[in-house]
């Protein structure tokens, strides 16, 4: 019962947040100078006025805003100005799968790299293994994706020929972009895991476990892991947001027609409906992810579970 009430109240908060995000984005986009039809080549003033009238851009801003929200409530995101002949929903439906694939793939790599590396470093604290892992993590954080990406493309794509260095043609094409993202976030997760595990490994109850004859492996994974990865779980929300919405650079490097691309072009072209559509999509995604992360935290930590009940 309490669980249902909690979920309902979270849902309410999320809708409110979504509404605020849309409203703020709507007005900020309009406050920015320029417009969708201020092209480089001069468009005759009367044609521009006609186009603006056609799209309803000549009406007062509040009227446009109310109309937009009304359409949104019926599920209509409008048409993209920049992608002629496509609705916003169609553009998102085309770009989102690519962005989601490389974002989730990136998360997969990040966890697969970061958690073992951080756990290893923590269990061998202040040894060569620890220093080596953490130097590697520091490198991963410091080298920007626009350097790592091309290096991976050159090595695995051109030299070894294992993957396409560019484009979205084969089922394996997500791997290099995801790896590029995964190295950066994995490095960060490695440091978080090491810190979290060290904190737990210093606790009295780990000494209790050792005094019971538990092996080092089971100490790490049976006794310390749940507590040790809490910092990583807390980071999952922001990480996923960054992975999915911030994949613009990686999409550019690997020539992918993802949502990040559409978002940036929409912003530079003042493609208002597409800006709002992508922001809406990202917001829903991030809110959902944060909600799942919250549930995961509660599930991991019995004290939180008790507090919630």
């Amino acid at each position: 019962m309490d669980q249902t009430r909690y979920i309902l109240s979270r849902l309410g908060q999320s809708l409110l947040a979504l509404f605020c995000i849309i409203t703020i984005t709507f007005f900020i986009a309009r406050l920015a100078p320029g417009g969708p039809f201020n092209d480089d080549k001069a468009v005759p003033a009367h044609i521009q006025a006609k186009m603006e009238a056609y799209y309803g851009l000549d009406k007062p801003l509040p009227v446009q805003y109310i109309k937009y929200i009304g359409n949104l409530l019926t599920g209509d995101f409008g048409s993209s100005f920049g992608n002629k002949g496509f609705t916003v929903a169609e553009v998102i439906a085309q770009g989102a799968p690519i962005s989601l694939a490389i974002g989730l793939g990136g998360l997969l790599f990040a966890l697969a790299i970061g958690i073992p590396l951080g756990t290893l470093a923590a269990s061998r604290k202040n040894t060569k293994t620890d220093y080596f892992s953490m130097s590697f993590a520091m490198l991963g954080i410091c080298i920007p994706t626009f350097v790592v990406g091309p290096l991976l493309a050159i090595f695995f794509g051109l030299r070894l020929g294992w993957f396409n260095a560019w484009g979205w043609f084969q089922p394996t094409d997500w791997i290099l972009p995801s790896l590029t993202l995964g190295i950066y976030y994995g490095a960060y997760i490695a440091r978080l895991t090491r810190g979290g595990m060290l904190e737990i490994l210093g606790q009295d109850y780990i000494r209790t476990a050792r005094a019971k004859g538990v092996s080092q492996f089971n100490i790490l994974f049976g006794h310390a892991f749940r507590g040790g990865i809490i910092p990583v779980v807390n980071f999952l929300g922001p990480a996923l947001a960054g992975l999915i919405s911030g994949s613009f650079v990686v999409e550019t490097i690997f020539g992918l027609d993802g949502l990040g691309q559409h978002f940036i072009t929409a912003a530079t072209n003042r493609d208002y409906p597409l800006i709002l559509g992508t922001v809406f999509f990202y917001a829903v995604l991030i809110i959902t992810v944060n909600f799942l992360v919250d549930l995961l935290q509660v599930w991991l930590n019995p004290r939180l579970r008790a507090a919630r009940a």
Binding site: D204, Y205, A211, G213
Partner: peptide, 25 residues
């Protein structure tokens, strides 16, 4: 030693508030 710990020689500690693992039943 692992075969001795918790089997033939056991220990209890000073602070019971911190000596049990809060994440495990």
């Amino acid at each position: 030693l692992r075969k001795v710990r918790g089997k033939r020689i056991s220990m209890i500690f000073q602070d019971p508030m911190t000596c049990l693992n809060p994440f495990l039943k």
